[in-house]
Nucleic acid binder design. Structure first.
Lengths: 192, 192
DNA sequence: CGTACTTTTGAATCGCATCAAATCTGGTGG
DNA sequence: CCACCAGATTTGATGCGATTCAAAAGTACG
């Protein structure tokens, strides 16, 4: 990122549950998480919350740079430190700084791939398959470290929290999984 | 798009069911659909096919420009005409042609928003809600024109085709929907 | 210590997937 | 033109798994 842009960053602090922006708000800044966690969410008619993005470091709602108004709400999931970059200078920097632009494009492409994986996961219709898919695609070497409660993980997996708890313990009983605090490790199918 | 790049396009024709590229293939070209339909798909262990992108005009697998290998398969869903752009010149054009670059960035951002909508839809756990959501977010003025069989629409909605058929006729019987060939119109809740 | 939230288990219900089979459709070739 | 075939569409019956409602136990925090 060019220094001239970095110099324009305004530090922000948000407490747990605090709203960063709402659907319909004009997009005036691009937010970058320094520390903590922010989430992009939408609520459906029943009041169920769908988590669309979870960011613990780096930008959030990157695609909003392209639209006049936000399409989702953003909230802080923990006490969070952010940087706020005004859109105008941000767009100029993308125009004029090739390295910055290139990394921004990679960021968007990564987000697309991540969302495709998420769609693939939500298309699986058993809880066990979604869990395995998540460990495979988001974990490292078969080990997934959770940075959230299981309840909110359940929401991310499109499951009720009860279903997640039950499936996790069933999979562990079947030897398909080892749960150790926030470390979830998948076990390969045992040879007979 | 700059003329110099357009001049490098190689026309291609693909028949229904023909594979355009497979997971793991090196990314050498960017494909653009001129006419017909191409799909990005992945198959899970049970042989179920998940549709990750459906394109009837414009680029497909845009995010692959950023990776050395494809992460999905691409197939033609009908007889399709495509253009093939070599990656190298394509990347140069993105560097050097600001207008082209800007529209490419918008394309990626749109794709991100579309995928978020798709995730939101798949998080709904009733068939009726997914259908309504799809009409609302992909239709125009409450009318959705299907450019595919209902069977493959069902796959896109993460439903079995039987569930889709049954839910469509139930919703129509309840007056929530009007089905007219490939036109699906949502009806607002009736005042009593 | 009390409060709010997560985690965990139980029981009942409902909707979707699945398997099966019949009908309808468009396209091909005789 | 008709027979035929592959695929889509439609309806039926069944079972399973997830949701839902309920409640208890655990946990973090002020």
């Amino acid at each position: 990122m060019p220094r001239s842009l970095r110099a324009l960053a305004q530090p922000m602090v948000a407490d747990t549950g605090e709203t960063l922006f709402r659907t319909g708000d004009p997009v005036r800044n691009i937010l970058c998480i320094v520390d903590g966690e922010a989430r992009l969410v939408r609520s459906d008619i029943h009041g169920n919350t769908v988590i669309l993005q979870r960011s613990r470091a780096g930008f959030i709602a990157e695609a909003s740079l392209d639209t006049p108004h936000y399409h989702c709400d953003a909230i802080a999931a923990e006490p969070t430190h952010l940087l706020r970059f005004p859109c105008g200078p941000f767009l100029s920097a993308l125009e004029n700084a090739p390295a910055f632009r290139s990394s921004w494009q990679s960021l968007l492409a990564r987000e697309v791939r991540k969302l495709r994986a998420q769609c693939e996961r939500l298309s699986l219709n058993s809880a066990a398959e979604r869990i395995s898919h998540c460990i495979a695609s988001e974990g490292h070497g078969g080990v997934l470290v959770l940075h959230q409660t299981r309840k909110s993980w359940a929401a991310e997996l499109g499951l009720s929290h009860e279903a997640l708890y039950r499936t996790l313990s069933r999979m562990q009983a079947e030897g398909k999984l080892v749960v150790n605090g926030n470390q979830i490790s998948s076990k390969p199918a045992q040879p007979n």
